[in-house]
Design a protein around this nucleic acid. Structure first.
Lengths: 146, 146
DNA sequence: TTATTTTACTTGATATATCAAATATATTAA
DNA sequence: TTAATATATTTGATATATCAAGTAAAATAA
């Protein structure tokens, strides 16, 4: 098998896989919590039990800081988060999950597990470990070049 | 190794890998052709020597039809494409690459190869084949569930 | 201490993603 | 042939991505 025409490259299938997975996730999340996106859910999870600033969370979920500002704003409007400025460093933003946010986190938990199981069905631990390693290589290859 | 906290899941690393790759690609493309995006380049490649309608191309590059309409519009404005309606079926759009577009395709070719080589450096054929297989599984798992 | 630089975040502009609804043409059923 | 349905694309609304420029506070240098 050749990996040199667009539709047969590994990188094309990475894109394909992640898009399919995101669609599945969003569909299942929307059925239970209509007003939250996959990424917003991920932000809630990252904030849970973690004292992180806005840009730290942004790095964790691979978001640009500008996007983060806007996503957080929407999540505040939907009453999932509260934002205050840090006392130690007034540049930093402190993000807190509201009770509504915590409730959603609980609802999210089984959905996420189910999505993961669905996506990774029939994939052995060994296979998964290998996938993980190869992806790390690709990520590092791309990043060190920058 | 466990795969159950967000930052350690395979799916998280898929996202990480594809984002790193896209950044690398965009950086290298922008150096040579400042006004074209990775996806616009991919669209040109898909259109090259292929008589495809707009939605067929959209499916190939995993784009929503609405997005496709807008991306194509921008590419026409930048004089990369010409759009006409099909004579056989007036609903369909026929897309043609302009001379400027063809020139860009030629410039793109070595960049894309280089990007691919960079990203896949140190990854054996066997490893790549395995990656490809696992990704296909994930894609199918996600799609059949929908 | 003042000036400079860095950090954390925001805003503006433009492109893209996504959903729902709309339009135009083509196909099928009655 | 007319009515109903399906297909290909577009448009509107809203969210997100990305780059560049801006703001405010903090850290560092002179």
């Amino acid at each position: 098998m050749k990996y040199n025409t667009p539709t047969t490259t590994v990188l094309y299938s990475i894109e394909e896989a992640i898009k399919a997975y995101r669609k599945l996730c969003q569909k299942n999340i929307s059925q239970i919590i209509p007003d939250i996106t996959v990424d917003q859910g991920l932000i809630l999870i990252m904030l849970n039990n973690n004292e992180k600033t806005q840009s730290e969370i942004a790095d964790l979920v691979f978001k640009d800081y500008a996007s983060m500002t806007r996503i957080i704003k929407l999540m505040i409007n939907k009453n999932y988060l509260i934002k205050t400025t840090s006392n130690e460093d007034k540049r930093k933003a402190e993000l807190q999950i509201t009770n509504k946010g915590k409730k959603v986190l609980k609802q999210l938990d089984p959905i996420i597990k189910e999505n993961r199981n669905t996506a990774l069905n029939n994939i052995s631990d060994r296979e998964m470990e290998q996938l993980y390693k190869t992806l790390r290589k690709i990520t590092n290859n791309c990043k060190t070049e920058i």
